[in-house]
Design a protein around this nucleic acid. Structure first.
Length: 459
RNA sequence: GUGGAUGUAGCUCAGCCGGUUAGAGCAUCGGAUUGUGAUUCCGAGGGUCGCGGGUUCGAAUCCCGUCUUCCACCCCA
């Protein structure tokens, strides 16, 4: 019989156990901080009704969505009834609209689940990946103060992930739109297109963007383009510098002035939220491609690894669920693409394999003593120590090799000698040390060893 | 979805002006006086050379097609 090659479809990230542990550690850190800031957990199904997901009718969305079809439906043909979610924001909108009367507003939710996009697979781009989102949804209105809270969450998350210095970069869509209006680019659609080009500044360089904007597609004058590029080049180097830049912008139209005022308030509050000023900055080139952002927008970059790009982004939107409810539900949210982040951190050497979740392995010296080994394991487990017992007889060398490859740090050895002395040999495979402890002190000793190991790992 | 490159062992690759049984390193598995791993030594398994067709006495090697993967664009986490 011909074998079917065992392989994953392209565009997925499947990990070996120790890597999976490292990835889960990352998710745990993110979740812990989301909860610390008082966000509530929500999970939604991987698939939604097709008409819910495709309300936007955007060609891009439809091209990237995976449809889900039952066998019966397949025979009937037509557009499938179900589709896989491609982000967590659309499901959130549906969720909030559906449960509107049972939710407490402002509604603060976090959600960490996989999403699916039918993209052409490429390095560091996935078709199945985790998003870790937090959003705050207001009823009728939502203070701009929440726009300042999210950077505080971001700061706490990435500080705890210990992946080096980073900058949360801020901009405001109102400021951008107001600025474009002043230049005569009044049409919303055109502004979006210009913003999208401006977003490529860091990647493609000023010359490319200048050529595009003065070219046929946009037809802007050289003077206007120069003003845009100068404006968009503004970056702050400190809190005071950011405020000075805002002050220097002067007055524009209503939209422009509102954008400036919002940015000023957000900046002031970010500081009050306790984010050190080295970790946030004004960057007027941050545009974000998504057209539903209406105010504050964020991107976060690692200072020492700019090639990684944004590791967390989001912003303010004026009305979350307009497709599903007449209620006006403004919100602000951010998203961490955990799968890509993990993958890139690993590529950059910033994250290694995890530590095995198994603390101790009980080796099998003497098959007849198996009940004794199992009793010890039960005692350790009761004390909260994750323990594995070797159940099949075999050479000790093999057992150690197994433990080593599994990344299990401590191995217990109990043969007739130790049993006679009522003692246990504890071998630390990492430090290549072995010592004997009285049987009665085993749990206490292992606890101390494990605490030390954890403390060393945390440094 | 558009354009460009790639394809030899599980992985990284060598072999390619056509010529005997296709190689290396790493990995895997086994052994080195029976209670100690990752280091050392010895040995073993593993490839219809992406797939199909063509040229030829003879193809991993040349030609055509096809698929795959990768890169860029689009878009984005």
């Amino acid at each position: 019989m011909a074998l079917t090659p065992a392989r994953t479809p392209p565009g997925v990230l499947e990990l070996l156990p120790l890597d999976q542990i490292a990835f889960q550690d990352m998710l745990d850190t993110i979740r812990r901080n989301f909860e610390r800031f008082g966000f509530l957990p929500v999970e939604t199904p991987v698939f939604e009704l097709t008409d819910i997901l495709l309300t936007k009718e955007g060609g891009e969305t439809e091209r990237q969505v995976y449809f889900v079809q039952s066998t019966g439906g397949l025979e009937k043909g037509g557009t499938p009834e179900l589709a896989l979610r491609f982000d967590l924001t659309v499901p959130l909108a549906r969720y909030v609209a559906e449960h509107e009367h049972d939710l407490n507003f402002p509604f603060r939710r976090y959600q960490m689940q996989r999403v699916y996009r039918g993209e052409r697979a490429q390095r560091g781009r996935f078709r199945e990946f985790y998003q870790c989102d937090i959003d705050v949804i207001g009823k009728d209105s939502l203070s701009v103060r929440y726009d300042a809270e999210l950077p505080a969450v971001i700061y706490n998350v990435f500080r705890d992930l210990k992946i080096g210095p980073f900058t949360i970069q801020l901009n405001n869509r109102k400021l951008m739109r107001g600025f474009f209006e002043n230049l005569g680019v009044a049409d919303g659609e055109a502004q979006t297109l210009v913003l999208r080009e401006v977003d490529k500044l860091d990647k493609r360089g000023a010359d490319y963007v200048r050529d595009t904007l003065t070219g046929e597609a946009f037809g802007l004058s050289a003077d206007v383009v120069r003003k845009i590029l100068d404006f968009v080049a503004i970056r702050s180097t400190s809190h005071a510098d950011a405020l000075a830049h805002l002050a220097a912008l002067g007055q524009g139209g209503d939209t422009f002035n509102q954008g400036v005022a919002e940015l000023r308030e957000v900046l002031e509050l970010i500081r009050a939220f306790g984010v050190p000023e080295a970790f946030y900055a004004l960057n007027l080139s941050i545009a974000r491609g998504l057209d539903y952002y209406t105010g504050t927008v964020y991107e976060t970059h690692l200072v020492e690894h700019p090639q990684i790009g944004s590791i967390c982004s989001g912003g303010r939107y004026e009305n979350l669920a307009g497709h599903y409810t007449k209620s006006h539900l403004p919100g602000v949210g951010i998203s961490i693409g955990a799968t890509r982040l993990y993958w890139q951190l690993r590529e950059a050497g910033l994250i290694g394999t995890g530590t095995s979740t198994v603390d101790v392995i009980v080796t099998q010296m003497d098959e007849a003593e198996l009940p004794r080994y199992l009793a010890i394991a039960n005692e350790l487990r009761a004390a909260g120590i994750a323990t594995e017992v070797v159940l099949e007889p075999g050479k000790l060398a093999r057992q150690f090799k197994y433990a080593d490859r599994a990344g299990i740090r401590f191995a217990l050895v109990l043969g007739s000698d130790e049993i006679a002395r009522d003692a246990v040999q504890v071998k630390d495979l990492r430090r290549q040390e072995q010592f004997e402890v009285p049987r009665a002190e085993l749990v206490k000793t292992l606890r101390v060893e494990l605490e030390q190991a954890a403390a060393m790992a945390a440094r």
